[in-house]
Design a protein around this nucleic acid. Structure first.
Lengths: 202, 202
DNA sequence: TACGATACGGACCCGGGGTCCGCTTAACCC
DNA sequence: GGGTTAAGCGGACCCCGGGTCCGTATCGTA
């Protein structure tokens, strides 16, 4: 079974669609305003082609997101300091979160579009489990940490796309401000010597 | 102009609709499965009545959410210890977040429905500004805090409905576990002596 | 060049949010 | 209680967007 190679026009179209979608999402301010028909038109293909290639709306956005995310993923799994492995945990955790933040800033439209699919909250997405797992493993290397799992979730929640979007677009927080704020917050969380701080209320 | 009193059937219907909606959202597992027509049927009224009374889907969910939220709001603005004013800031912040967490646990369906409206991310909702403002003011009373604004956002992000839902329904974290985890996390954030933790990466 | 497999595309379907308007009925006045 | 008025009702209807289908065009191969 020599596994036929995919047709040339198919791959060409696939690229065209991804490019068109990226462009449209980037220019329109509410991702749900971008309709499938719009994307098809902009890419110069029929609607059927979209769904053949990407199954459904979510699939298309997913695919797009994935391509943009790949480099960062790479940098984390086996890249150089400070993102790659081999960086001491506290510094690496900070680097991770900063990287996510910057990514979301640079690709706000995509991240928002992804979350706006509605079909699956971010927590259904495959990315999320990966991010969470990675961050959790890093935190686990820090001494004296018990609630690693929840902490990873909470830290990731601080860089969710819509929050970032709200802070930059509506509240006009400049990028660097946001980065330092996040860094300080993360540092607080990770360097605290919190004993059993569990005050219990009735 | 003696200001006619509202018609009896109108208020009766309003209640019926709210009750029906609450019931439906509570039983169906994905809020977007509940259609406006469903709610109208369940309440024994016509679709027109829904839109007359609540403008649109978002409005209906908003109204519902508001009624459930009111007691807690009350307890915070002028209730007793530990939620009310007059509680020392650290303890009060912990109480606030715990209260939000419990509320979202008890009304998961509503909170999810609200976020799933899509039309406005949680950050567009009026509640959010109030929560954020309240929490921010409390944090501001803690000594040595600089990034109060962002910290408030980040802490609130940790109790977002879909995260809570994911942790309880998919990961099966028990309620009490979640509460203690959140309490510890919050304590870490608020009791850390974080100096200028702003390591800068290139 | 001929042929099979694959991809194309746009007409079409369907379900859900939101509208509209002729009819109903509660509130007010006597 | 009976008449008048306008607020309220409801469901047929519209619109729009995601997703499907299948006759046709195109590619890859021999």
């Amino acid at each position: 079974m020599p596994e036929r190679k995919p047709r040339a026009d198919a791959v060409r179209n696939r690229e065209a669609v991804l490019a068109a979608a990226d462009r449209l999402f980037a220019t329109c301010d509410r991702p749900e305003q971008v309709t499938m028909a719009d994307i098809a038109d902009a890419a110069g293909v029929g609607k059927g082609t979209l769904f053949r290639g990407f199954t459904d709306r979510t699939g298309l956005i997913h695919a797009l997101y994935e391509t943009r995310l790949e480099p960062i993923r790479q940098a984390i799994t086996d890249g150089p300091h400070p993102l790659g492995p081999g960086t001491p945990p506290l510094e690496r955790a900070l680097a991770l979160l900063d990287a996510i933040l910057c990514f979301k800033l640079d690709h706000r439209h995509l991240a928002l579009a992804l979350e706006a699919t509605g079909t699956d909250s971010p927590y259904g997405a495959t990315h999320y489990d990966w991010w969470h797992g990675t961050l959790r493993d890093v935190l686990a290397e820090l001494p004296g940490f018990t609630t690693v799992d929840f902490t990873a979730h909470a830290l990731l929640a601080a860089v969710r796309a819509d929050l970032i979007d709200h802070l930059t677009d509506h509240r006009h927080l400049p990028r660097e401000q946001l980065r330092t704020d996040l860094a300080e917050f993360t540092t607080r969380v990770l360097t605290s010597t919190a004993g059993p701080g569990t005050h219990s209320f009735a």
